[in-house]
Design a protein around this nucleic acid. Sequence first.
DNA 1: CGGCTGATTGATGACCGTCAATGAAGGTGG
DNA 2: CCACCTTCATTGACGGTCATCAATCAGCCG
Lengths: 242, 242
Amino acid sequence: MSTHAAIAAHANRAVPGYLVSALAMTPTAGMGAAVQPRNPADPLASLGHSKVHERETTLFSEGDAAGSVFRVLSGMVRLYKMLPDGRRQIIGFLQAGDMMGLAFASQYLYTAETVTATTIQRIPRLELDALMDAQPAFARKLLSATTSELIAAQDQMVLLGRKSAAEKVATFLLRLSDRKGGERTIDLPMGRSDIADHLGLTTETVSRTLTKLKSTRLIRILVGGKLDLLDRDALADLAGGF
Amino acid sequence: MSTHAAIAAHANRAVPGYLVSALAMTPTAGMGAAVQPRNPADPLASLGHSKVHERETTLFSEGDAAGSVFRVLSGMVRLYKMLPDGRRQIIGFLQAGDMMGLAFASQYLYTAETVTATTIQRIPRLELDALMDAQPAFARKLLSATTSELIAAQDQMVLLGRKSAAEKVATFLLRLSDRKGGERTIDLPMGRSDIADHLGLTTETVSRTLTKLKSTRLIRILVGGKLDLLDRDALADLAGGF
DNA sequence: CGGCTGATTGATGACCGTCAATGAAGGTGG
DNA sequence: CCACCTTCATTGACGGTCATCAATCAGCCG
């Protein structure tokens, strides 16, 4: 059941799912690097077409018919699911190189919205299937990427199920830093409520926790949604193990 | 980042991961059905070898060198991750048909233990790789199964991040029932602390919540770790949307 | 029957959510 | 270019949910 329910379990679902998962075609992508449009080493480069979306735009919604796969070339996207009464859980934030829409069902399983202005490559499923047939190695790459997603999802379960507010925020900041190759200065383009809905907290608690980290000199909050990690070791202690 | 962190992010991890994911080779498996050892429609049937493990046995631990993939043929297994101070998050419970160890890294990412006496098929990675090469369709099946896992993991994030104790327990019970094809009577072979560590609660809260469900006639607790869902609709309301 | 493990129930309080007010920031129009 | 307005972040007061600590209670096995 739950996390490790088998296919059999999902066959009972009322709403067929269309997974939105992430895949990096650029394993060495550094800080804030955008995916290059015509990279010969990128098997996806010539597929579909790209478009720039403004900030706070919906790309697709939970339940929409799913015909395409998407890749983020630059910017940031949030994926979330909502409960009927409006409570929201942000599944993840996507950055350059991440993909969404890799499942095998007829509907999208959650909603995707841009956080910042974002360049998105839209690839029709048929084209992706053709590529998988033509290049078996590519199918493995997809499997490997999905697997990485799953690992990240499991870490997030530990965070949501067993960490305190302070541990959650510290972990989140360290993850952002890691994603940028361990940079001391990180971007926080999303709002407090996005962070809260990702960590299973409220905006007030996120704000209070950041204030506390600020007053204990572990971080410094800069203008323009940027943030400095002043004491990585102390933050790692606070995070209580990834 | 986090759930949708790309490969790039994971490349920074201190401990390489070895995913343990579930895969059902028997999409129509009914209630409590065990996987048949010599099913001709099962491409895995002839691989590796099977062994019965007693209840409460460790199959492998987080950090162990990973050389094999496992499939549960009968019984139940729990997968969990632990924080340094001992807090535990149970990632999922595996039943007949589920697989673990499908990732591409050198170490297991978490610990697997039997809950009940369990028959486990152990398949060396090399054999699985050979099968993937020989049967491209099998590789796709693996991808599809991993994808289903990811979907389940995302549902679990919603549960852990946004649901109340009552909603968590109700959801958990309904999932167990769904997994058995919607049976009214379900098995709870795991202890209260296992349930608690899966739902992000304590044993006391799980116990109190079950007592409340019992006194409001939504469930009935039977001997031998069994449980009756007396009012599925009311439970579904309580669950607050899957 | 006695001892052990796990479940239940109770009392208490901490953490964090809720409600509310203030403050800061960014965008638009005069 | 500044003033206004809207949106979001911050801070405060309070209360509820659930964790913690602790004491039975029930079931199981020798």
